[in-house]
Design a protein around this nucleic acid. Sequence first.
DNA 1: CGTACAGTTGAGTTTATTCAAGAAGAGTGG
DNA 2: CCACTCTTCTTGAATAAACTCAACTGTACG
Lengths: 254, 254
Amino acid sequence: MFTQLHDPVHLLMRKMEGIDGLSDSDRVALAKLPIRSITLGTDKDIVREGDRSLQSCILLQGLACSSKITGAGKRQIVAFHLPGDMPDLQSLTLGTIDTTITTMIPSKVGIILHEHLLGLFENRRLNAGFVRSLVLDAAVSREWVVNVGRRDALSSTAHLLSELSTRMHSIGAAADGNSFDLPITQQDLADALGLSIVHANRCLQVLRKKSLISWVGQTLTILDREGLEEIGDFTPDYLHMNRRALSPASLQTA
Amino acid sequence: MFTQLHDPVHLLMRKMEGIDGLSDSDRVALAKLPIRSITLGTDKDIVREGDRSLQSCILLQGLACSSKITGAGKRQIVAFHLPGDMPDLQSLTLGTIDTTITTMIPSKVGIILHEHLLGLFENRRLNAGFVRSLVLDAAVSREWVVNVGRRDALSSTAHLLSELSTRMHSIGAAADGNSFDLPITQQDLADALGLSIVHANRCLQVLRKKSLISWVGQTLTILDREGLEEIGDFTPDYLHMNRRALSPASLQTA
DNA sequence: CGTACAGTTGAGTTTATTCAAGAAGAGTGG
DNA sequence: CCACTCTTCTTGAATAAACTCAACTGTACG
């Protein structure tokens, strides 16, 4: 039914990685969590800003983003979500949704009722795992403020691509280590960087001309990681990944 | 020793507000939490990016901010911290600090060892309270991405001032409801907005010319809240405050 | 009285945006 | 298989927004 890569339980267990080892009973509890899986097409809203919510989701397969629209009608993407991410976990605490979460390609999403998640929270280790997930998302979000606020367009473009590459890599989605599927439009990229689409396009061209990346079709390839990270002022520290997560081989042995 | 406004226990209890009522034993647990209080001058780092940490802090009195420095040496402030905030609570989960936290005026800071906080986390209600605090900070941070990324300079300035006013108000720091102490420099404001200081200055002048604010000495007065929030595209939803918190009178009766 | 720092102003430059149009590609229906 | 449409990407040119540099003012403080 699921390949291991997209199996909810496998993804949830990986989410708990930063936490000291799970016991067998922890694993059983995770495996018993009732998850209803739904399939969505491209550009479908999973939840919308302002919704009240009694459930949270986990992205099982595909790609999604969180965005907000300003009063002037401009869109800002505040996060990309990869398989294994729980983009609206905070609704468990807040009850309301504060970003619109949208699929960017056909995706599979697992729905978990808050009541079931709360049950899991009785377990201190699992609780810590979910809290860690929230804290990591917050750390990424703080870095985005810096990226959008204080780096110039070229640098922030390079930074974002570096981040995506590193995160794709860590979930085993970067086949050969440097190439991965990036099925987003330049408009999406611009909305994530707070740039106009024209300017985002020109920044990409510079990165290509410098032979740092290639992006043909939906495949982004990092041609010169060091150079890209240099120009993007990128260090992966803020992602707080452990060594295992930074190595794609970890997935085979997990 | 402390006025109620700056009493650690009082502040901690208010932090738990969003949670269904605390029991007496919860209050006792909070009151017993060992907090070492230290006093710092202006512009002192409480913690620095990259530090490893075995403790977290709570701002008891004063004003602080979290910032990051880019490789090019530019500073971006990613959050302001008001009394009652716990700016590095996430270090409890991550072990490391990812923003430099700096006092902006002479401040009093409470230091709490992680081991003691973890003890509190055995208690499900208190745990939920701290998690809520983390989640709220993350919500503010997402809104900052939008502010810095997709609002023009004038609008984002107005938005930030609206946010600060609302938050000051909610902790009872806005004496008459529209005036409060804002002892920050225009450079700080610029660093929070991702603008040059010259441009930030000019935006402030426009807001003054439109009679939306006055900012003399360290006192910021909102002259026309509706107008300011309009131009700043501000709605307080993302702060997820309850009605009580939005009314300063609540502090008298708390 | 001198120094330091915050705020202000003007002028020129850079960066990024907007507008508009054309090229490339993917999918659809005839 | 072709014509058509739609979307995305690309390019050029004009415009607007924001930045840098540099000087000057005011105020606080020793």
